[in-house]
Write a protein that binds this DNA or RNA. Structure first.
Length: 376
DNA sequence: GAAGCGTGGGA
DNA sequence: TTCCCAAGCTT
């Protein structure tokens, strides 16, 4: 069934383009979802929604969005907020560099652009966390500028409309699709047209079992005409997450617990969590690893019982976590990225979900009767 | 160009 | 259970 990739880009005819524009906008006017970021065209709100929606489902985003714009109603409020507060508002949403970049970009908008999100593609794209898609989305939706906003939905739709066999997981494919998409955008309603493309992808032209029966542009779709809608788009499969064994320390000093801030840049970079030791399966015993690791900090602990186990899957990593209880025996002043925290204060920290799960597990079981597994 | 970066939901 | 995601960006 596979076909050869066309060497050249699709060249839609003017008549075809007019039909697509008309049918798609008419359908959008009647079927658009009433989403909270569609209540007005405040560029700041559009911006926040687009960052949150990166690789994240609409249903997941909605409550975060409502709470975020309530806590930070304007770009000025966001820029002036402490970073801890911004990250806390992002807790559980994932891809936390998005929050850091958004915060930094808000500061830049205040300092460089007097609080107004720039209308120039070159300037808005320079903001941290704003790439090609997000720049196009903000400019077209908030400012009605005729620029492409090509996300996964749009690539899927275009791939089917033109029976395009290029791998949409490649960056080069997205750039080519932007070039074609640019020719489809109507001068009068660029923002609505871009949203209509995405809405079609979300509601009708879905990844599996697309609803071609009710598609407003099925007569204009080459994949539908050839029965190829289930074959397209072509997308290279990703690698499965690499399994890792990990130990979390639930280390107590009185009614305090030791937290650790993870190093910037990597997995959960800059986020607080329980002291964490990653090791390949079978490389070290849990207690030895924990004790050795903390000893390097000048902290002596006596490992106790295993409080429990949990599994957590990231995009590229699978953690098999063992939560180990330990009591501090003696310690000196720790570095800045370690902090003793009252158990009752843990809720004030922005903990990624994997650590939130571990804290819940530990607090439930630390007083449970019986030693499940003595380490020494 | 490819890899790294979270999470929860549905098939 | 396992897989594939869902309105991508950065390095």
């Amino acid at each position: 069934m596979k076909q050869n990739q066309p060497e050249s880009l699709p060249r839609p005819e003017a008549d075809w383009v007019r039909k697509i524009q008309k049918e798609l906008l008419t359908w959008y006017d009647q079927n658009r979802r009433g989403l909270p970021w569609r209540e007005n065209k405040d560029p700041y709100r559009i911006w926040v929604s687009e960052i949150m929606l990166q690789q994240t489902r609409v249903d997941t985003v909605i409550p975060y969005y409502e709470q975020f714009v309530s806590a930070f109603p304007t770009v000025k409020d966001l820029a002036e907020a402490p970073e801890d507060q911004v990250i806390k508002a992002w807790e559980g949403l994932g891809y936390y560099s998005r929050a850091r970049n958004l915060h930094a970009a808000a500061k830049e908008v205040m300092e460089q652009y007097k609080g107004e999100i720039p209308r120039e593609p070159e300037k808005i794209s320079r903001l941290k966390g704003v790439g090609s898609y997000t720049a196009g989305a903000i400019l077209s939706i908030a400012y009605d500028l005729p620029v492409p906003a090509v996300d996964g939905n749009v690539m899927r739709v275009l791939s089917r409309w033109f029976a395009w066999w290029e791998d949409i997981s490649k960056a080069a494919t997205r750039r080519r699709m932007e070039a074609v998409d640019r020719e489809l955008i109507p001068a009068e309603r660029p923002g609505d047209f871009n949203q209509a493309m995405m809405e079609l992808g979300a509601l009708i032209c879905t990844p599996v079992s697309p609803s071609c029966d009710t598609c407003p542009v099925r007569e204009l779709c080459q994949a539908q005409a050839e029965g190829l809608q289930e074959e397209l788009p072509v997308k290279k499969k990703g690698k499965p997450p690499v399994p890792m064994e990990v130990t979390f320390g639930w280390i107590r000093r009185g009614d305090q617990v030791l937290l650790h801030r993870r190093p910037q840049g990597g997995l959960l970079g800059g986020m607080w969590g329980l002291p964490t030791i990653e090791h390949w399966q079978g490389s070290l015993s849990l207690g030895e690893a924990l004790k050795t690791s903390l000893a390097e900090l000048g902290l002596k602990v006596e490992p106790g019982s295993i409080l429990g186990e949990l599994e957590h899957v990231f995009s590229h990593r699978r953690w098999y976590v063992t939560v180990v209880e330990a009591l501090e025996i003696s310690g000196e002043d720790l570095t800045e990225d370690y902090r003793w925290v009252q158990e009752s204060e843990l809720d004030n920290y922005a903990l990624p979900n994997v650590y939130r799960k571990a804290v819940q597990l530990a607090t439930e079981r630390q007083y449970a009767a019986g030693i499940q597994g003595r380490l020494f």
